[in-house]
Each structure stands twice: as C-alpha cells, then as structure tokens.
C-alpha cells in the first residue's frame, strides 16, 4: 500500500514531467533507441529470411547463426562494443540489434517456408516467376508470422533498452538505475511501469498493424499465435 501511494506520488510530482531528465524526455530517448534498433534489425533479418525461405538455400546456416545470436549475452555484446568504441549509442544499438535479429529472422524464414506447396504450384501455373511468387504469394502469407517476430523483438528491445542508462545515454532505464543508487523504490517501480506501458503500447500497435496489412482472407483464419 505504501509503495503504491509512493509510486503515485512519484508520478504526480510536476518536476517529473519537464526538462531533459523528465519522463517525456526519457520516454522519447527510449523510443528513439528502440525504434532505431528495430529498424536496423528488420533491415537485416527480413530480407535474409525472405531469400533463404524462398530459395531454401542457406536456411540452415541462417537459423544456426540466429540461434547463436540468441545465445549471446546482452551485457557481453554491450561491454565488448564499449571497450572497442567507447560509451554512447553504438554499444546499445549493437546489443539491441543482436537481440532483435533472431526472432525476426526465424519467423520470416518459417513463414515463407511454411507456404503451402500447392499454392506455390498454383502461382507458378498462373505464370508467376520466382520474384512474383515471393512478393505476391509468400510474403503476404508469411506476413502474420513476420509481424509476430517483429513484435516479439520489439518487446524484448523495449525491455532491454533500459541498459542504455548504463552507458550514459539515458532512456527509461535512467529511473531504474537512479532509483537503485538513491535507494528510492518508487523510482525503480515507476521506471519499470513506464517500460511495461511502452511494451503494452507496442503490442497494441502490432495488433493494429496486423489488422491493417494482413490480407482479409488470412485474418479470418484463427490467429497464428499470441
């Protein structure tokens, strides 16, 4: 009870809502790093997943590399890049991209790979060539799974972007780290709540996106997963 009122008080303080260390500024930093990392990871993982899934070549290698990336300790990647390039945005982005690539790559690959061979036969029978089959058949069919991969990646990125505070570039992790060093639990809880809120917003955004871009015929099928 005490903590709940403490957290409410923390949110109610006017100084939390203004200036470069206020909630809006930290929130913007956090979103900035997360979006940047997700865009880079998507630009790497989606094309590789599409091509390997479509051709079937290199799929095993891509999935194996994705699994290695999944096993990389985030703190290790962060530290290694800090030692090489110093504090700043680069280590955070490297760690977040390494985190986000595997789910996007695996889901894109599985989505394209899982296209019903009979549909591919039909597409070829209609005169579609390789690129047509990929972009007009396999990509739309794989889209729900690709979005799912992006969403999983986005949630992990949003939650892990808190480490940005450790290399001095702010973000919502700042509240968690400062709360710990000042021994104010309200601040830690407040920071964590803001991150959870952002993750919920991400989930809602992807539900909306799914509604907008997934073909109507595919949407009517049971959701692939949640």
């Amino acid at each position: 009870m005490n903590i709940v009122t403490g957290v409410v008080d923390w949110f109610a303080q006017p100084e939390q809502w203004a200036g470069p260390s206020g909630i809006p500024a930290r929130f913007a930093e956090h979103v900035h790093y997360s979006v940047l990392a997700l865009l880079i990871a998507g630009a790497i993982a989606v094309p590789i997943g599409l091509v390997t899934g479509h051709t079937g070549r290199g799929g095993f290698l891509a999935i194996t590399l994705a699994n290695i990336a999944r096993a990389l300790p985030t703190i290790g990647v962060l530290t290694l890049v800090v030692l090489g390039m110093g504090l700043g945005l680069a280590p955070v982005l490297a760690a977040l991209v390494a985190l986000a690539v595997p789910p996007i790559l695996v889901n894109t690959y599985e989505g394209v790979r899982g296209t019903d061979p009979q549909l591919k036969d039909a597409a070829q029978g209609m005169g579609m060539r390789g690129g047509d089959v990929l972009f007009r058949l396999e990509l739309p069919i794989a889209l729900p799974l690709i979005l799912l991969g992006l969403r999983t990646a986005a949630i992990q990125v949003v939650s892990t972007a808190t480490i940005a505070a450790y290399v001095g570039i702010g973000g919502l992790g700042r509240f968690i780290v400062d709360g710990q060093s000042r021994r104010t639990i309200e601040m830690i809880v407040g920071g964590a709540l803001l991150v959870v809120l952002l993750a919920l917003a991400v989930t809602a955004l992807f539900a909306l996106l799914r509604h907008m871009v997934v073909a109507r015929g595919l949407r009517r099928r049971p959701a692939p997963a949640t």
Binding site: I155, V158, S159, T160, T162, I163, G173, I176, V177, G179, Q180, I185, I188, V189, G191, A192, V195, V196, A199, L200
Partner: peptide, 11 residues
C-alpha cells in the same frame, strides 16, 4: 515478460 530484468533484480 515486458518488465525490465534490471528493475526486477533491484526490486
């Protein structure tokens, strides 16, 4: 799952 691990450790 969305709660940052750092925050849970500290809490």
């Amino acid at each position: 799952y969305a709660v940052p691990s750092l925050a849970l450790f500290f809490l």
